[in-house]
Design a protein around this nucleic acid. Sequence first.
DNA 1: CAAATTCATGCATAAAAACGCAAAAAGCTG
DNA 2: CAGCTTTTTGCGTTTTTATGCATGAATTTG
Lengths: 249, 249
Amino acid sequence: MLKKERQAYILHQVHLHNKVLSSSLCDEVNVSEDTIRRDLQELADEGKLIKVHGGALSHSFNLTSSQSQNVYLQNKKQVIARKAASLITNGMFVLTSGGTTIMELARSLSPQLKATFISGSIPVVLEYMHHPNIEVIVIGDKVSKNSKITIGSEAIAKIKQIKPDICFLGTNALDVEHGVTDNDWEVVQLKKAMIEASKKVAFLMISEKINSVQPIKVCGLNKIDILITELETDDPKLKPYAKAGIKIL
Amino acid sequence: MLKKERQAYILHQVHLHNKVLSSSLCDEVNVSEDTIRRDLQELADEGKLIKVHGGALSHSFNLTSSQSQNVYLQNKKQVIARKAASLITNGMFVLTSGGTTIMELARSLSPQLKATFISGSIPVVLEYMHHPNIEVIVIGDKVSKNSKITIGSEAIAKIKQIKPDICFLGTNALDVEHGVTDNDWEVVQLKKAMIEASKKVAFLMISEKINSVQPIKVCGLNKIDILITELETDDPKLKPYAKAGIKIL
DNA sequence: CAAATTCATGCATAAAAACGCAAAAAGCTG
DNA sequence: CAGCTTTTTGCGTTTTTATGCATGAATTTG
């Protein structure tokens, strides 16, 4: 990895998460802490970020107080994203939906990962594009403004033509009886197609949404291969799903 | 292998992967590192890439962020964008490429405008999405990292299926003799398809780029319906193009 | 305040770049 | 085509750059 490339990655991470730890950075890009520190020093000298003990902060890190609730959720999503990322290995074809949790997954991918990502979510695609070794394929069609993903028959047809190794789906509601449910008809159609196309399906969800139901059914529990939450794998909330044969992560 | 040929290969690699290592290059083309270094130096001098220790980076790696120069260009681009926007009326189907000038166009659209925009450029699409009354259609395919647009046969096939009222294209080089030229083969293929598909074609360009030539031809002057620059319509630089029957804006 | 991190500094080393030079290749000219 | 110039390329040598490691100082944290 080239120096400039590494610094670009660092800057990107800073802008993304508003902070970086030098320890995690040197882990991610596989260089010594000294090198990271020197990079941070240089970037700080250029005014690109603020260097602090243990890492660095984004220059636009002033208005944090108003979003305490969001930060709380953000952390949970990062835990989920890291768990999900651990399932992806070099050479894989990965299909993903959109949503903030998937976005977090896109952000926490290792820069060394070489894989192909397919998605119809514009913000998520933009995020994938920043990774040096990732191939990105966009599913085209009309863009739904509120979900920010491409929807429609063209998109579904395109999904049917591929056979990804794994599919990651953000989840709005999960229930033992009703399975996975959602509230946007178009998005549900798309998710159904994604589930059918993929060899393996992983659902990402914040634990708050467990045992809730939405009006439109996506799929039953039997279609879920892996369920990823921020909880420990032996959390009692997850028991019924484990019992249904779902792998908990 | 000829020098020119080698440099073309290097440029291609840079556009493809966003970076090249001089070590791997001299291995691939079987010349000494010195030669590669000299090539990179030349290409860097011509502004075709960014030379760094150990190799080179694509220009899309905008770590340099020279903002003062950009602001200057930005103003010109806003002038161009406003002119272009005046051509769009309610109900139109508009096809656009990517690039910073088109991005500016996307930003300067009236929030009241009700139209359908079609594009393969991810950042531009994201910008369109912010407009309340605009329908957005994404052209799907593999994403090219340096141009940030979708490229490939799928994208071209999709373009051939539509018949937009007008097409706006960012322009890299224009010349009386050679017409519109560009330096990325894949992007050129896409632009050609866009030109063929559209009822009307408008080219957006900064006046600096007038009377310059790039290696790959997009189209002749006869395909240009409208030329939009930041200059006054009676500027002498534009005379030959007006004489060729192009509407100047 | 004591332990554990994290940082700064100098130094060592390997890799890459710059430089000068000379040979080879290509181009030009009469 | 012979002789000249120019361009291109490769090879040492020297310089610069990037990176890791060791040591001691500074800092966070409990």
